[in-house]
């Protein structure tokens, strides 16, 4: 145990040596970094693999842990140098409550947020994609919309179905209230038969997601950067009006 502690302490020791190298740079070059120059005013949050919630998943799963992301979102909200947030999504879904927690956090941020769905934004990735102020999907990306199912111990009582149904309603309500899709349309996609080989539901591809109103526009990095800069300008403009 003591050995572990020593090993963990090593990286921190290195911190002091790197700060002294920074001092050396200042002394030899006569300058330090211009404030804000290396800092990006737009931060990037990538949500990849499984969204890990209450239970730690086995190590072969690539996961995004929500307990890592929630403090980062608060830090972004608090830091005055950060003006916008881009969310990169390539996820196969995961824990419902962790996904909804992330979605609510992103949607309740005061700073402009833009999401890009790359590759796949399946299942619980759908509410996360719609939680941003503006959402993009690349033409090749897909989003699988399917009913919420139980994993693990299932007790075959009517209450189980009701619980599942309520859980599903939370997802549906979030998506419907944060995108332009109609509730009936989303439910149609969710319970469609014959689209998926082993399940009911729909695999929505890039352009279709925009046609259904689920995602705001088809586009990639360039479009997202333009949009976030536009949103940042808008918020700056509105803040100035308030001051006057």
């Amino acid at each position: 145990m003591d050995k572990d502690m020593e090993k963990k302490a090593q990286p921190q020791e290195d911190q002091s040596s790197s700060s002294s190298s920074l001092v050396q740079k200042i002394q030899s070059l006569g300058q330090t970094n211009v404030p804000q120059a290396p800092d990006s005013n737009i931060h990037v949050l990538s949500i990849v693999g499984q969204i890990e919630g209450h239970i730690q998943l086995p190590p072969q799963n690539k996961t995004t842990k929500y307990e890592h992301l929630l403090p980062q979102l608060i830090a972004i909200e608090q830091n005055p140098k950060i003006e916008g947030l881009i969310i990169l999504l390539n996820t196969v879904g995961g824990d419902v409550e962790a996904g909804l927690a992330l979605s609510e956090m992103i949607s309740s941020m005061s700073k402009p947020t833009v999401s890009i769905v790359l590759g796949g934004g399946h299942s619980i990735g759908v509410p996360i994609a719609t939680s941003a102020n503006y959402s993009f999907i690349v033409p090749t990306a897909t989003m699988t919309i399917h009913p919420v199912r139980l994993t693990g111990l299932v007790i075959g009582v009517p209450q189980t179905f009701e619980y599942l149904d309520k859980m599903q309603d939370r997802v549906i309500n979030f998506v419907v209230s944060h995108s332009n899709i109609k509730e009936e349309k989303f439910k149609d996609l969710m319970f469609a038969k014959g689209n998926l080989t082993r399940d009911i539901g729909t695999n929505v591809v890039g352009n279709d997601a925009v046609d259904y109103g689920l995602i705001d526009a088809v586009g990639g990095v360039k479009d997202a950067m333009e949009k976030i800069n536009e949103l940042i300008e808008n918020t700056k403009g509105s803040q100035q009006e308030v001051i006057q």
Partner: peptide, 8 residues
């Protein structure tokens, strides 16, 4: 815990 994912 409920996992909402297309994976088995």
């Amino acid at each position: 815990m409920i996992l909402y994912t297309p994976l088995a």
